[in-house]
Write a protein that binds this DNA or RNA. Structure first.
Lengths: 218, 218
DNA sequence: TTTAATATTTAGATAAGACTAAAAATTTAT
DNA sequence: ATAAATTTTTAGTCTTATCTAAATATTAAA
């Protein structure tokens, strides 16, 4: 069984390797974990000893199949709990992360299985991210940047890339929230701005905004 | 904020002092925590430094008001989660303890508050133990040993004192489970055995059984 | 009330996970 | 291709929570 700290490192490596496709550096891990490179090296050795990562000195790190399964299991729990908090306990999308960071480490196969059933076997969390199944299979994400949405397509806001207060306040002011329905009317090739219909009101947004808002096609 | 280990010690002290009425010895704490007396002493010093217990060398330990609040808060969460697991996630009463031991340490005021609301502000957990309120007030327990129940009184099985497999198997064989309704027909003063009506069938149980089964008057 | 038994504390060690500072390897730039 | 910059690793320290063994205090017994 992996410790809490080991699970957090595995999760970090999984995300950094973009679902286990690339090799990850010690520094990148340290940065993501908000710790020092020497601490990362220590943990890398430990995960290697446990057969959870492939590792050669100075050459970076890659999850083994066991490591990937452990990471995905934590991510599965994280996303199930986020959905539980939003759907059942009246949390809003921006309040769930911190609590889910704790809940994701609870060890009980039955709990995860029953929570999944209670939520009626969901495939996406409140941010539009896919929820891996019990076998560790990750459905491909249905979320994309608003900037990529085609003309006349309808979509639903599911998250932000930039989560700074400034951007969140901008969204608030312009009545864009999680779940808001957006229709792309047109795009301006000169400055990459976009004309949208939001709540039946027409509005123009800049390239910056379009590149920091995640949506799901509806 | 108390660490996980500190919370477990506070909980142990609370239970050992029978809701904070008596002084607790180092050895008793060590035994409850399944650790050595020297480890208990170490933790006692730490809790004392943090103002969570009163302590004089060789004289035993007592929770301060802050310590009591911290302990009760953990117990509140434990019991809310146990109820959640049984009522919402199809756990049975004997499966919940281990998971609740983990969930009780999740730190989020909002989570506890919303869980309480989701469960419609319950006052008892699945074992018939009272759930403290958000201010740390503990409703008095409504559960008692079957041996104490008066003649012709109806009650409901809410837990066991002896949780060894042997006893649980005995209960199973005689169709006594959590929630089973029991009516006390009579008691034999000679051997303290009791005549009961269980599921409309008359049955006699020994003193040993009567002293290991918790019920709630209904 | 002095001794024996028990309970408690102290001292020193260990493992996990973090840190700093310094050494070694790798990569980049001249 | 060598020097400089960067990255990674090593060595040694710290804290938390545990342990064993030894010392000290308290309680019980003769």
């Amino acid at each position: 069984m992996a410790t809490l700290s080991e699970e957090n490192y595995l999760k970090a490596i999984f995300h950094l390797s973009r679902h286990d496709k690339t090799v990850v550096s010690t520094n990148a891990i340290a940065q993501k974990m908000e710790t020092k490179a020497s601490s990362a090296t220590d943990m890398i050795k430990k995960l290697f000893e446990k057969g959870l990562i492939d590792y050669e000195k100075y050459k970076g790190v890659k999850l083994t199949e066991n490591g990937r399964l452990a990471a995905v299991s934590v991510i599965r729990k994280h996303r199930l709990w986020e959905l539980f908090l939003v759907d059942k306990l009246r949390f809003s999308w921006d309040e769930v992360h911190e609590v889910a960071e704790q809940l994701e480490h609870i060890k009980s196969k039955k709990l995860t299985r029953e929570l999944d059933a209670f939520l009626e076997f969901p495939t996406e969390d409140p941010h539009g991210d896919p929820i891996p199944d019990a076998n560790g299979n990750m459905p491909s994400s249905q979320k994309l940047l608003l900037a990529k949405v085609k003309q006349l397509q309808r979509c639903i806001c599911v998250g932000v890339k930039d989560s700074t207060p400034k951007f969140l306040q901008y969204l608030d002011k312009h009545k864009i929230a999680l779940g808001t329905e957006i229709t792309v009317l047109s795009r301006e090739s000169y400055d990459e701005s976009m004309a949208l219909k939001i709540n039946n009101i027409q509005r123009t947004i800049s390239k910056e905004v379009a590149h920091n808002l995640f949506v799901k096609i509806s």
